[in-house]
Simulated assay, not measured.
Amino acid sequence: MEVLPPARILPSAVEVTHDAYEQAYKELAKMLDGRYPLSFKRAVFISENAYFDSRLDYEEFNSQIVALSQLCRLLKTSNDPYFLYDRADKELVARNAAIFMMMKDSTRLGKGRVVAPFRYDFDDFNGDADWRKMFVSKLLISHKGNCHSLPFLYKMIADETGAPTWLSLAPNHIYLKQHNQKDGWYNTELTSRTFPNDAWLTASGYISKETIVSGIYMDTLSAKQNVVLCLVDLAKGYERRVGPAAAEPFILKCTELALLHFPHYINAQLLRAEALRHQFERQQSTATSQQAFAAMEAAYTRIFETGYREMPAQMYTDWLQAVVKEKAKYQTQH
């Protein structure tokens, strides 16, 4: 049963919410400019904690990640004798294998204790009705997540255990990239718990050659870029709490900083362009309308030049179903 703090905001709590988001922004900004060390785990927590007006407990959040990481280390040790991979990077590959095993299957701890696997939650998978559906804190409670929270959790555990893993972007989607000496680069898809190749992702995921060349999709993200993802999540969460109009200045501030450190991040570009469009629509009959139009036009031109084309919501839903069907087909054949 999920037990999460209420998401509804009361008029008297607006100032509290604003302060929580401002504090979160400042901490993420300090990570990005080098004043604080980069920590993806901390950045994820910061972006989620602000949504709850800073009422979550970082020590509790951290202890859950550490406990899962320790479980993965135990799984690796117990399965080492049966691990058939024989290249020089066996240790690193085994660390990733243990995380995947823990997330994919039930893990028995003895005395009837079982850690449930982490499954895909098809209910409101974009967080349209409830933004908390995107959160790792929700995933840790329910063991159900989406293509946002599942790879985020995997990445945090990988950071704890020293498993080389990179987040990567596709339209409306986040997945994982890894590398080994035997196969080279490969992908891990937690939606279906499979390892699709780049060609399959390109063919089925609405990814064009232009979007790959421009760097908005299918590249490995750096530690700093991972934190930028959380900064944009922070802006989106604030928009959900107070509404688009009230959130506009904060969105523009967050996306400006995000694009300073990750110029190709398409979600930051899209969020910024939408905020600038709303700004222009309000100022059409004012003296500043021409300036507002120029800013909006530049933002949308930049997006167009990346090769980005909007993936319809139904197409993404169909893509998710195709991923599940592909997995079922593979299991039947093998």
Score class of each variant (00 low, 15 high):
Asp123Lys: 11
Lys253Leu: 15
Cys72Thr: 11
Glu297Asp: 15
Leu74Lys: 13
Leu71Asn: 03
Glu91Phe: 00
Asn79Phe: 07
Ala223Glu: 14
Gly110Ser: 08
Thr288Gln: 14
Val323Lys: 00
Ala235Arg: 03
Gln23Ser: 15
Trp131Val: 13
Asp86Glu: 12
Gly34Gln: 15
Lys90Asp: 01
Gly215Pro: 06
Ala294Asp: 15
Val44Ala: 07
Thr17Arg: 05
Trp131Ser: 11
Ala328Phe: 09
Leu276Gly: 00
Val136Gly: 01
Phe118Lys: 07
Leu259Thr: 07
Glu305Thr: 14
Val44Cys: 10
Gln291Ala: 10
Leu169Lys: 07
Gln284Cys: 11
Lys138Arg: 15
Asp233Ser: 13
Ile266Asp: 01
Phe45Thr: 00
Thr188Tyr: 13
Asn96Ser: 13
Ser106Leu: 08
Ala247Asp: 08
Leu260Asp: 05
Leu38Met: 10
Ile157Asn: 04
Asp33Ile: 01
Cys147Gly: 03
Gly127Lys: 09
Leu190Ser: 05
Arg282Met: 12
Gly110Met: 01
Pro5Ser: 06
Trp185Tyr: 15
Phe125Arg: 05
Asn187Thr: 13
Ser222Val: 00
Arg277Trp: 10
Ser63Leu: 08
Met103Thr: 07
Leu92Asp: 15
Ile251Gly: 12
Ser63Glu: 14
Ile65Ala: 03
Lys327Ile: 04
Asp19Phe: 03
Ala298Asp: 13
Leu150Glu: 07
Leu260Trp: 07
His264Ile: 09
Ile65Asn: 05
Phe262Trp: 10
Met31Asn: 00
Ala43Lys: 07
Lys144Tyr: 15
Gly112Ser: 04
Tyr154Leu: 00
Ala322Arg: 12
Glu189His: 04
Glu27Met: 10
Phe304Gly: 05
Glu305Ser: 11
Pro312Phe: 09
Ser192Leu: 07
Ser63Tyr: 07
Lys30Tyr: 11
Gly162Lys: 09
Asp159Val: 02
Gly243Ser: 02
Ala292Ser: 12
Arg95Leu: 15
Pro171Ala: 07
Glu239Cys: 04
